[in-house]
Every structure is written in C-alpha cells, then in structure tokens.
C-alpha cells in the first residue's frame, strides 16, 4: 500500500468514527453560528440549518447511512432531554412578571394548543395527507425537542417533526411581528405570548430583538405551550383518530 493511500484510509476511518462525525456536527454548527453573526442575526441564518446541510452532505460523501450517524451522535442528542427540563428556568425567570395576566395566559395558551394541533391535523387530512404525516404535523408548534418526543410517542416521524418545528419557527421569526400588527394585537405581553406559544424558541428569539417584554413572554409562551401541547395531544388523539 502506498503512503498516500494509507493516509487517505486513515482520514476516512477517523471521519466515519463517532469522534469524526461528532466533530463534523460541531464544525457545521460553528460555521452556522459564524454565518449568523456575519448576517447580523438574520432569521434565515439559523445555525441548525447550516449544521444539518453540512452533516447531510458529509455523511452522503462519506457513505455513512443515517441510522449509523444517529447512533454515533447519541452523545449530542442525549442532551435534548435535560435541555427540555432546563426550559423550566426561563419559565421561572418570568413567573414574577405575571400579576393580573395568569388566567388570560393559561387559557390563551391552552386554546392555542388545541387550535394549532387540531388545525394542523384537519388541514393536512383535508388535503389528502396520510395518517403518519398527520401525526407528524400535530406537535409542530411545540419546541423542537418536545415536538420530536411527541411525534415519536404519537406514531409520527421524529426527524420530520423536528424539521417542521424548525421551519415554522423561521417563518414566524420572519413574519410574526407584522402579522400581529395586522391583527391589531398591541399588548406586548400578548404579542410575545402568542409567538412563543405557536413558534417556540426561534420565534421567541425574534421577539426578544423587537422588545424585552415581548421576548420574555415569548419564552414563557414557549415553555407553557410545550406543556399544554403535551397534555392536550393524547386527549385530542382520541378524538382525531
């Protein structure tokens, strides 16, 4: 075996190992963060999209199939669970600002959960989407880790649920402030809450750049909505299917 071939084999072997695949994932994410900083935090420049594109290309070129990548990257995806638990912290931070808004907030988020789950399923069904796709679309308003877990327990496709949640977050980040103004919602608490409840963290980060109160309530909306959707989904599933 000649030396060039020997080096090349070594490179491929390391790149295909869990270590190499995790390095590629982190590298893609850092590239995404760099791009986000370069574009001044544009809503389309989400590090997760860049990372997914980089990893998707890399595993195709390296001829690593998806289940193998998924296994190798367990070290990263494992932390989704603890991160979901950690969402209690932003909730805790905002809990003091709530005087006089608790009941409107809880009822509104509950309504939002029912409407967005039922809406997603019924629209998809009316347009001919199959059962699995309906179950995948149902939890998309929840924050991505919760949407993944819910799609899984409901019999949907978790990776697609993640993609849907990310996409709707980006759409919200681009359009939500203008849409809310069109709807004549002028209360900053309600504006933030609504965006967080239906478009989670990516939408919330846009609201935070608009205004601090809107950002705080978007964070709150995201946490409560994840909870509300988790509770409502099993019940709605009995009615919808």
């Amino acid at each position: 075996m000649n030396p060039v071939e020997h080096v090349w084999d070594a490179v491929l072997e390391v790149a295909r190992s869990p270590l190499g695949l995790i390095a590629i994932t982190l590298g893609g994410y850092q590239l995404g963060r760099w791009l986000q900083a370069r574009t001044g935090g544009h809503a389309l420049a989400q590090p997760v999209l860049v990372a997914i594109a980089v990893v998707g290309t890399a595993i195709t070129l390296l001829d690593v199939d998806y289940p193998r990548y998924l296994e190798a990257s367990t070290l990263i995806s494992f932390w989704l669970g603890p991160a979901t638990v950690a969402l209690a912290v932003p909730l805790h931070r905002q809990a003091d600002q709530l005087k006089g808004f608790v009941l409107p907030l809880l009822v509104a988020v509950g309504m939002g959960a029912v409407v967005s789950v039922a809406g997603a399923v019924l629209i998809a069904r009316a347009l001919g989407a199959d059962d699995v796709l309906q179950r995948t679309l149902a939890p998309k308003a929840a924050t991505t880790p919760v949407a993944i877990a819910l799609a899984d327990s409901l019999g949907g496709i978790p990776p697609l649920a993640a993609a849907f949640a990310i996409l709707i977050g980006i759409f919200a980040a681009l359009t939500a402030p203008a849409v809310l103004t069109l709807l004549r919602i002028r209360d900053r608490r309600a504006r933030g809450l609504a965006v967080g409840a239906v478009s989670h963290g990516i939408g919330a980060s846009r609201m935070l750049r608009e205004d601090e109160t809107e950002g705080a309530f978007a964070g709150l909306g995201m946490g409560l909505s994840a909870l509300a959707i988790s509770l409502v989904l099993p019940l709605l599933a009995l009615v919808l299917w």
Partner: peptide, 8 residues
Amino acid sequence: QLLFVPAG
C-alpha cells in the same frame, strides 16, 4: 439548536 441537529 445544536442538540437537534442529529434529529434534523
């Protein structure tokens, strides 16, 4: 966001 790259 990094944590849901594997799922994505």
